[in-house]
């Protein structure tokens, strides 16, 4: 029977690259700090897809471990970043990045 090819690595990598680029475009065109933060999470997810796909393709577990630590760093970043947003909003009344150009009051 004619065998059908498996899903290639390049397909997964293209999806990862597409998600990363969507995150880049979002971070460039949006003005709300919290949406920019979400776009950064999208970029991290795109990299994670590529890492797991490489790990799957090369029959190795190292990509998965790297993705695990990326996830840990993303969690830490979410905690700190959102605390900073709440603090900025309390001081300025807005979190638009156009209007936040100074760290001091």
């Amino acid at each position: 029977m004619h065998s059908f090819p498996d899903v290639p690595f390049h397909a997964y990598a293209t999806v990862g690259a597409g998600l990363f680029i969507i995150g880049v475009i979002g971070a460039l065109i949006r003005r709300s700090a919290i949406v920019i933060f979400m776009c950064i999470e999208l970029m991290l997810t795109g990299v994670n897809i590529t890492l797991v796909a490489l790990s799957n393709r090369l029959n190795s577990i190292d990509g998965v471990m790297l993705m695990f630590f990326v996830m840990i760093v993303a969690a830490a970043e979410a905690a700190i970043g959102l605390a900073i947003f709440v603090l900025l909003f309390r001081r300025r009344g807005t979190i638009k990045v156009d209007e936040i150009n100074l760290l001091k009051k």
């Binding site: 059908f4 498996d6 899903v7 397909a11 997964y12 999806v15 597409g18 998600l19 969507i22 995150g23 475009i25 979002g26 065109i29 949006r30 949406v35 979400m38 776009c39 999208l42 897809i49």
Partner: peptide, 20 residues
Amino acid sequence: KWCVFLAMSMGVIFGGLMVI
């Protein structure tokens, strides 16, 4: 597997486009 991959990658990209 191909069907799941195509549907889910479209979901990923569509969700990302909606986010931005």
